[in-house]
Computed example of a mutant assay.
Amino acid sequence: MVELVGGAHLVTAHGVLAANGVLVAAGHISGDGERFPYGALFGNGHRHNRQITTFYLLDDSVGLSADLTWLSALTARGELDPQVALRTDWTQVARAAAEPAGRRVPGKAVIDVRRADRTTSAADPVTVPVTRKALRDPGQEWAA
């Protein structure tokens, strides 16, 4: 399981891991610390050998392109669900930032940015995930 929010979400995610499960802490967008209750790290009741590991995207920039290509292919084939709960266009950037901040969407918020340099009317969108920085300042100027 890959967890991006941190804080209580990471603790909850660890709590649902089955035996031999791996939780990858790949982000901490909540800014909250983690506090595991007494017993959360016990291995009884078919909870043995659960692992938490960390991941920092930029430590492996050499392999990043291949990894992202693989994940994109899985998503395109429907084998990986990125849990996008809100997808909207660039004109709704304030909404896309406000909804996750208010915990009103149960997943990721994504905005599509149309490239101005395209000559066709059906320009391919550039997908921009809403980040913690965007949540702090939804009115900022962004470049894609």
Rank of each mutant, 00 (worst) to 15 (best):
I52V: 06
Y56M: 11
Y56D: 02
L58G: 04
D59I: 01
D59Y: 05
S61F: 13
S61V: 10
V62Y: 03
G63D: 09
L64V: 03
L64G: 00
D67Q: 07
D67E: 12
L68Q: 07
L68A: 09
W70S: 04
W70R: 12
S72L: 08
S72H: 02
A73V: 01
R77V: 00
G78H: 08
E79W: 09
L80S: 07
L80F: 13
L80R: 05
D81W: 05
D81E: 05
P82S: 03
Q83P: 00
A85V: 01
A85S: 13
T88F: 06
D89N: 07
W90A: 11
T91E: 12
Q92V: 00
Q92Y: 02
V93E: 01
V93R: 14
A94R: 15
R95G: 01
R95F: 06
R95E: 07
R95W: 07
A96V: 05
A97C: 12
A98M: 09
A98V: 00
A98P: 02
E99Y: 12
E99K: 08
P100D: 04
G102A: 15
R103G: 09
R104T: 14
V105S: 03
P106D: 15
P106Q: 13
P106R: 13
P106V: 07
G107C: 10
K108P: 04
V110G: 04
V110T: 07
I111D: 00
I111E: 00
D112Y: 02
D112W: 03
V113D: 12
R115M: 15
A116K: 13
A116V: 14
D117V: 10
R118Y: 15
T119P: 09
T120R: 15
S121G: 15
A122L: 11
A122I: 10
A123G: 15
D124P: 12
D124I: 13
D124F: 15
